[in-house]
Structure formats: C-alpha cells, structure tokens
Design a binder for these strands. Structure first.
Length: 712
DNA sequence: TAGATACAGCCTATC
DNA sequence: GCTGTATCTA
C-alpha cells in the first residue's frame, strides 16, 4: 500500500488502528466515552473503500439517529477527500423503509405504504378498544401501545404472544387481541409502525431465500453504531444481513447502555462473542476528552456495576480541577449556586455554549430556568417538542397524507372532523363499517356512500365538503407547488378560521408555525419525499444561535461534550429515579448508574454535581437524601462546597444481587420442552427470549421461563 | 357540539 | 398543583 492510500490511518492509536485494519469476520469495538468511537467507524469505512475491499455501495452502516448518520457520511468523505455516493448509511428505520419500498408487494403492502406515528397508534388502539367494548379504565390505551411496541421490539408476533409464559391472565388476553386487530388494521390501511419497519425486513429476508442472498451479497461489510442500544428485532435484523460472510463490525459501550426502557438489550453487546463465532474484540480505553479527576470518578462509579465487559479508561491529561459537590438546602438554593458558578465563569470569559446543565427529568428545569431568567443568563432547553410534532402541523400533515394516499385511514380519521364538519363518532363508524364490509379504504368508502346516496343530512353535507376539498387538493398536486397546496388546505379547510376563532392563548404562534411550515415545504421535490422526511428524519430544529447555556436531560446528553458540566438533583428518588428501582430493581439501578457515568464523562475540564436536601415536587415539599452515587466517587477527586447537609461518605457498599437471566440455563442445541408446544430444540438465544425449532416443524420465539430442559 | 366538570398522571425517547 | 383528556349535560 502506498502512503497516498494510507492517510486514513493517520492519527490513530494502536487499538484504533487494530480495529480499522481488521477487515473480515466479526468485530466488536468496545469504545469507552471519549475514546474515538466515531473516528474508528469512519476510518474503517474509509479504509475499506480506499483499499478496494469494498465499493461504497457494498457498505451498510446503521445508526440510531439521523444526526449520527449524517455525521458519519461527512466524516468518511472528509477522510477520503472526495464525495462518496452510494453508501447505505442511515438509521435502522430509514434503511428498512428503503428496502421495504422495493419489496413491499412481497409483504402485502404497496411501495407507497404509510408510516404511522405514536398519535396514530394511540388513535387506532382507542378505536379497537371501543369496538371490543373494553373499558379504558381497565385497559389503558397508552399502556397497550407501549406493550405492542415492546413486543415488536422483542420480535414477538401476535400469534406468538400465547407462547410467552409471562403474558397470562385476562389483561393480557385483551391486549393480545388488540395486538392482532391492530396489525390487521395496519395491513388494511397499507401502513407500518416503526416496529414493523424492522420486522417486515426480518420477514422478507427470513422467508425469501433469493432476497436474503441478494442482500448478503450486496452488503459485504456491515457496521453498527451504538450497538448497546439495539433491541431484539434489530439484533435479528443484523444477523440476517450478516449471514454468510459475518463481516459485521459493532461499535458500542456497554457502560453507556441507557435505553432499556425503549427495548434496548444490553445483553446483545455482552453476548457478542457467543453470537458471532470467532469474533475479535478491541477495547478503546484511551480517553481524549476529560481530565484525570473526571475520568477517575467515572471509572470508580461504573466499576460498582456487575454486568459489564469491563474496561479501564486512562488518559494522558493531568488531574485538572477537582469535582465540586454542591450541597444545598433546597432546589432553589441549588439553582442559585449553579448560577453563581456560571456568573464566575462568565466573568472569566467562558463561552456559555460550553456550559451544560444536565437534569434527570424535565421537571427539574423549572427552578433552574427561573434562576437563569433572574440573572438574565441566556439558555436553551435542548430537546422537547420537535417542529413537526406540533398539533397544528400534524393536522396539516394528516391532510397531506390523505391527499397523497387513498389508503391512509389513520390520517383521515385524524382530520375528518377537524375543523368540525358534523362528522362525529357515528358518521365515522358508518364510513369505517362500509369500508370493512366492501374491503375498500375509508376514503373510497366515503365516495361510494355519497355516490349511492347512503348518507343523508348533516353527515352528507360534511362528507361532501370533505371529499371536494381532498379532490381539489389532489388536482392541485398535479400542477402546483407543495407550498401552495398546503396554503390552500389551511385556508379552504377552514383550519385557519378555526384557529382564529378559538380561545386558545397561543393562536399567533400556531399561525406563525403554519406559515413556517408552508415555507419549509419548498425544500422538497414531491409529496412522497416530504412525507418520508417527516416520519423518519424529523430533526430537532436549531434554536437561537445566541451564545447560551445548554439545559438538557442526561439521556439527550449522550454523545455530546462540554467544557463545564453541572449534574443536578443527585438525590435518592430523583437520581437514581424511584421508578427505575421499583420497576426494574438491580437492573434498573445499574442503568441509572450508567446514566451517571454518561453524565460525568460529558465534561472536558470541570464538573459540578449538586443536590438539595428539600425539594418541591408537584408543589409538595419533600425531604431528600443525597444520591448513593455520590458515595461511589473517589474522595481524592472531589471537593465539597455549599451549606446543605453533607453526605456521608463512610457508607457500606451494598452488594447487588442478580437473577441470572433464565435464558442462561439453555444453550444452542439444547433439547427443551415447552409448557404448551411440547418438545423442541434451541436455535438461538436472545436475552430472555429463546428461539426454538419445535417438533411440529414450527420455529417460534418463546420465553425461557416457559421452557424446561429435556435431557435424558 | 360547546362548555362544565371530573380525574388521572406526573422519567428518560429515537425513528 | 397543573394539564390534558374523557365524559356528561344542556
């Protein structure tokens, strides 16, 4: 290799270089915080291309966010020094959607299938519960949506729920009935939820050999970012794509697995060597971000966790400033002491944008914001409502979805009576019934009901008004810009009028949002492109560019870094959060501790940790005790400040106990007996879910606790 | 269908 | 204590 081809290896340390140069076979890169994870990923892609091991189109790189995907492309191109079109770099969902649009017919969809969001899911579940006469006091619709999503995350099909031992009883009988009807309804309306995007691709590859061969050949090298965040479905998805060549490189950090609540399985990364035979593991342990004190604190704290690969981060940088623990009488005092420190930093010419205040939960921001406002320190809250998630914007998008697709029943349901057209529950039920009986979309049903004079009175007038609006809009779609189309809908539907006549307080903001929305539409070439963007690339908008302090949650801080970081509310109940402990026990506690680790390692130069002895929560005063995590920090790295009660450092370390996952009882190839399916053979293990080839010939996913081993 | 009233829920979140 | 939503009543 000549040096010209080699510049992508510049500036890598030996571990990083080892990871980049490992070409074939499974590779796990355990990358501690600030150790150059993205650098390795992007250098590796550049290396594969520069050495001609792969064409750009043979590379599949998967991320969890669009931001990460975008950054990856940019950095690969920067390393190589030229534009690299054709790489498949994107989120699990956008890549899945792309593949599904090509193969939709094989799954009973059309290539223009709709992607639905949480609002749609909830609306659908409510409708189904009502149709089944299930009382929403008994079965909470939101909980059902969560359960269904979680089942999809675990690749548990509606027909498989019965096999899972832990879902028994009347409640689950109801939920799984809803699950089945929910899926039927999605199929009927040519729609996918986010879980389906992954599951359909799994089905496509698993059931169609030609298809699987095609993609196994096409994607020679697979790269996965943030592997610790993958759920069971994503894991199965990856295995299918890696089948045959096993050229899969997963990068992640088990110590930063903080998304258990949305289905992530830390076991995936802990199990990597077992899943992929002959896997090579490279640990990146040199940290380039933080001072030694900060790093030592993070290391000592995370070392309390039992379930981890175990890395020892080191740095060549100096001790730096000690971590300041700010103790305070109450939450207002906490905010004020933070603001005081910020004032000092300001005087010393620190940029405010290099300062971050991290909270466990959003309610903590109230008193912090008040204090910042008092002192006129500019701040921004990172996260929160995205532009396209605003109600008024979603309503107009629903109109566009109906204009775009006859089959989008859920979008239609959202806006058929917004603004009011005298089309209430009864009218909608009539359209829905007709649509089911005749097996046509609801929009078609409406047209036919009108044509055949099957509706009368106010409902007839309302439906006529609605269809004429949609039909006119469809005409416009042919020869007008999207911007004009949206403007037309907002006016002609009476939406604008409705807003103006309403007594809401923020009408002007909403009208302004709608105007902004119309402007934003001009960036898109067609409606399909826009709708795909809205569902899959809904990015956070950049707020004011003024130099301001960042306030964000620990979760959204992952992947970011700041010179100065304030970690707030280190009190039992808030952090670790009560509900994590109640719902997930030791497992929950370890995840909270990883969250603390993520928080600490965000700081480059100076870290503050604060707590209050008293806190007003939902307007009730509560006495709080300092977080146990404080006692897990090394004495030599911290200094105490403030007038609140000191925390007791002579605390006996509580040894945490673990229930070994029941799946650990089994291994691939074991003969097992299932409580209701009889004898079978273990095909694979995913967390506490076991894939079993049953003697009946059927292969199913079941939970470990519904299985007994069947050794002679 | 507007307006009043009752009532639950209140942690984190990408696509 | 506040907020969004479900349900009831005129």
């Amino acid at each position: 290799m000549n040096t010209e081809n080699n510049h992508h290896l510049n500036q890598l340390n030996s571990a990083q270089e080892e990871a980049v140069k490992h070409i074939n076979g499974p590779l796990l890169v355990l990358a501690g915080a600030g150790t150059g994870k993205t650098k390795v990923l992007t250098s590796r892609i550049a290396h594969l291309i520069a050495t001609k091991n792969a064409l750009p189109s043979q590379i599949l790189a998967v991320t969890f966010t669009n931001k990460a995907a975008k950054e990856m492309v940019e950095r690969v191109e920067k390393i190589l020094g030229y534009e690299v079109p054709g790489m498949y770099i994107g989120t699990f969902h956008s890549i899945s959607a792309r593949i599904l649009r090509k193969n939709a017919e094989l799954l009973g969809l059309t290539s223009s299938f709709n992607i639905i969001d949480m609002d749609d899911q909830l609306r659908l579940v409510k409708r189904i519960l009502a149709e089944l006469n299930i009382d929403t006091d008994q079965v909470n619709p939101k909980a059902v949506v969560n359960q269904i999503s979680l089942w999809k995350d675990k690749a548990i099909k509606a027909s498989d729920v019965d096999d899972i031992g832990s879902y028994h009883g009347n409640y689950y009988d109801a939920v799984k009935q809803v699950y089945k009807l929910y899926n039927d309804e999605l199929q009927r309306s040519n729609s996918c939820d986010f879980g389906d995007l992954i599951l359909h691709v799994i089905n496509l590859l698993a059931s169609n050999e030609a298809c699987q061969n095609y993609y196994n050949k096409k994607f020679k090298y697979i790269l996965v970012d943030e592997y610790q965040d993958t759920n069971v479905s994503q894991y199965l998805w990856l295995r299918l794509f890696a089948q045959g060549h096993n050229n899969i490189c997963c990068v992640g950090d088990d110590d930063q697995s903080i998304y258990g609540f949305r289905g992530a399985e830390i076991e995936n990364i802990l199990r990597f060597e077992k899943d992929f035979n002959g896997a090579k593991i490279v640990k990146l342990e040199q940290n380039y971000r933080s001072t030694a004190h900060i790093l030592n604190a993070a290391s000592k704290l995370i070392n309390t966790n039992q379930k981890r690969h175990g890395k020892t981060l080191f740095t060549e940088s100096e001790g730096g400033k000690k971590i300041t623990i700010l103790s305070n009488w109450d939450d207002n005092a906490e905010s004020n002491s933070i603001i005081q420190e910020i004032e000092t930093l300001k005087i010393r010419q620190h940029k405010l944008s290099n300062i971050a205040i991290l909270v466990r939960a959003f309610f903590q921001t109230r008193s912090i914001e008040e204090a910042l406002l008092n002192e006129a320190i500019p701040y921004k809250i990172v996260g929160g409502l995205r532009f396209y998630e605003r109600k008024e914007i979603k309503d107009i998008i629903a109109y566009l979805r109906v204009v775009n697709s006859d089959s989008d029943n859920l979008a239609l349901e959202r806006i058929i009576n917004v603004p009011k057209r005298a089309l209430g529950a009864a009218a909608f039920a009539k359209c829905n019934d007709y649509s089911r009986t005749k097996d046509v979309s609801i929009y078609t049903a409406i047209s036919e009901l009108l044509k055949n004079s099957l509706v009368t009175g106010k409902a007839k007038a309302g439906l006529e008004e609605f269809t004429s609006l949609i039909n006119d809009a469809r005409q416009m779609l042919q020869n007008s810009s999207l911007k004009d189309l949206a403007k037309f809908i907002i006016e002609r539907s009476g939406y604008e009028e409705m807003l103006k006549a309403s007594k809401e307080v923020n009408i002007d903001t909403k009208l302004e949002n709608l105007r902004e929305f119309c402007e934003a539409l001009s960036e898109f070439h067609n409606l399909d492109e826009f709708l795909e963007h809205v569902s899959l690339v809904n990015e956070l908008q950049d707020q004011n560019s003024e130099d301001s302090v960042n306030i964000l949650t620990l979760h959204s801080a992952k992947g970011l870094e700041f010179d100065t970081v304030f970690l707030t509310g280190w009190e039992e109940g808030i952090f670790p959060h009560q509900r994590s402990l109640e719902e997930s026990g030791d497992k929950g506690l370890e995840e909270e501790r990883r969250l603390a680790y993520v928080g600490i390692t965000r700081a480059r130069k100076k870290l503050y940790i604060s707590y209050a002895n008293n806190r007003r929560i939902y307007n009730k005063w509560q006495v709080s005790t300092p977080s146990r995590f404080l006692r897990e920090l090394p004495d030599e790295a911290i200094e105490l400040k403030g007038s609140g009660t000191r925390f007791n450092n002579s605390y006996q370390k509580k040894t945490s106990s673990f229930n070994t996952t029941s799946a650990a009882k089994f291994k691939v190839g074991d003969n097992v007996i299932h409580t209701s399916f009889g004898e079978g053979n273990v095909k694979s293990l995913i967390g506490d879910v076991v894939e079993v080839n049953f003697e009946s010939g059927k292969c199913r996913f079941v939970t470990a606790n519904s299985l007994k081993s069947n050794c002679v």
